[in-house]
Amino acid sequence: MSPPRVAPSRVTFPVWGTTALLLVTDEAALPEAERMLRTELAGIDAVCSRFRADSELVRLTAHAGRAVSISPLLTEILQAALRAASATNGLVDPTVGQAVIDLGYDRDYAALRGRALPEGEPLRPAPGWWRVQLDPDAGRVLVPRRILLDVGATGKAFAADRAAARIATLGCGALVSLGGDLATAGPAPEGGWLISVGDSHRAPAGATDPVVSITAGALATSSVTQRRWRRGDRQVHHIVDPRTGDVPAPVWRTVSVAAGSCVDANAAATASIIRGRGAPRWLANRRLPARLVAHDGAVTTSAGWPSDPARAEVA
């Protein structure tokens, strides 16, 4: 008779208007793992939060139009953001900062929740990620005038990847989830990391929500069911189509993607919300297992995502 499966040790805490979840396979490592996670999140917030006047990203606006030296951490995050933009043909674009503000997302969501905003000025497309000139070897970047960067989604995924990898150096398996975007590192528990996939990481698992198992890599979910507010006579949300500066056409309410890193999974999930009906083929061509839920609840899967809602493994 085999011994019972030992559940990983866990801790949760609020961060960035969402929830951080940390799981480790060694209970004794949990206190140090939590300290490492909190340290990573604090460092990344200080570098790339757009809601802090003292963040390095916000302070870049004072040097608009000039190449300036930036920290190694911001260099890595901007590299990740520009790589995500290139991989998604610009559908995930860090130059959407002004478009996001114009849409109404101009403060931490905890302060935005429940607000009703006037329609305001017409929305405009993002300037384009290719305008940002980053020299990662020199640690220098030039952001043109009138461009505001927003690396929030990529930064969150980057934080999950980085924290999980660092925690795994303690000799344990680690899973870090930030608002439902999760990364793993080190040895997985027996049977893999079991993850319920739904519209919201906060809501209890629904009867039809699949539970999948991953033994390595990452899983990210983008959804328009969360972070919503009113602008004029319509509801808008936090995912912006850089081509228009507006929310994308309502095709998918939630997209979950498995990939080798959380940055890649997050970029693909967000791009799929924006891409709309062409997303399943785009994901399949890139061999990214994904689950897409339409606004009427119809589910489409791609590239080997298990269609059976019972527990299954995602490669």
Score class of each variant (00 low, 15 high):
T39Q: 14
P248H: 02
T61C: 10
P125C: 13
T221H: 05
V141S: 00
Y105I: 15
L57A: 03
R311W: 01
P4V: 13
P122V: 04
T12F: 10
L123S: 10
N89R: 15
G297R: 07
D26C: 12
G120Y: 00
F13V: 12
S302R: 05
L134I: 13
H238C: 11
L283Q: 12
P122S: 00
T39Y: 01
S9D: 13
D161C: 12
E56Q: 05
D264C: 12
L21S: 14
I195P: 12
I214V: 14
V236Y: 00
A267M: 14
T88I: 03
T95H: 09
Q235C: 02
A271Y: 03
I77C: 01
P122N: 04
T39S: 15
I273P: 07
A42M: 03
L219E: 07
P4L: 13
A80P: 11
A290G: 13
R145N: 13
A7G: 07
R113M: 12
A267H: 10
A259W: 01
Y105F: 15
D54K: 08
A53M: 07
P250W: 08
V240T: 15
P144T: 11
G128L: 14
R286W: 02
G192F: 09
S49I: 04
R52T: 00
G297C: 09
R5T: 14
T221R: 11
V6N: 11
W252I: 10
F13N: 10
F51D: 01
D199I: 04
R38F: 03
R166F: 09
A138T: 07
P309D: 04
H237P: 10
L112E: 01
I167L: 13
R146E: 14
R115C: 01
L123D: 11
F51K: 00
D246G: 15
L112F: 02
A84L: 02
L112G: 00
Q226T: 14
G120E: 00
A290K: 09
V151D: 07
A81K: 00
Q79P: 01
R113K: 14
W229D: 00
G128A: 15
V255M: 03
G171W: 05
A183R: 11
A153V: 11
G186C: 08
G276C: 12
A218Q: 06
R275N: 13
P280W: 07
G278L: 09
L91Q: 02
P14N: 12
T301I: 10
I167F: 13
R243E: 09
A315E: 07
L60M: 09
R291E: 08
S256I: 08
P72K: 09
F158H: 15
L57G: 06
P204Y: 05
T225K: 06
S222R: 10
P122T: 02
A207Q: 06
L148C: 10
S55I: 12
A218W: 02
N266H: 14
S177V: 11
G217M: 02
A138R: 14
E190P: 13
G304A: 09
P8F: 05
F51P: 01
R66E: 07
T244L: 04
Q79W: 01
